[in-house]
Amino acid sequence: MSVLIAPSVLSADFGNLERDIKMINDSKADWFHVDVMDGVFVPNISFGFPVLKAVKKHARKPLDVHLMIVNPDQYLAAFADAGASIISVHYEACTHLHRTIQKMRQLGILAGVAINPYSCECIVRSYFSD
């Protein structure tokens, strides 16, 4: 399988967002990576639903939404509604990760789990089977 490339919209020129989205549409990229930050889980605030919806309006490839936010469960349905095909939540932000994964599957989106650089990748072991 060829590797999938997911350019991150966070690095795009927000003053020319439509231009940059079209560049990704016309490129060999596979997904749009969309970084959502809440200023609590991470020390930065990126953007939320209005920008995501603007991206969705022009994007012709799946939106891979990376939630760097606390309590992601509260917003999963809204991100699915806004056009996310893949949603990744942080292991470090989920008290009941299995419930969160189940909720993502119920929403019909691909379920992703993100792991911080110094958390062990082994934590997902138990989530590969019931």
Partner: peptide, 11 residues
């Protein structure tokens, strides 16, 4: 159940 996680994102 086996495919409970579709994507693991390593930061």
């Amino acid at each position: 159940v086996i495919s409970a996680i579709d994507v693991v994102v390593l930061m």
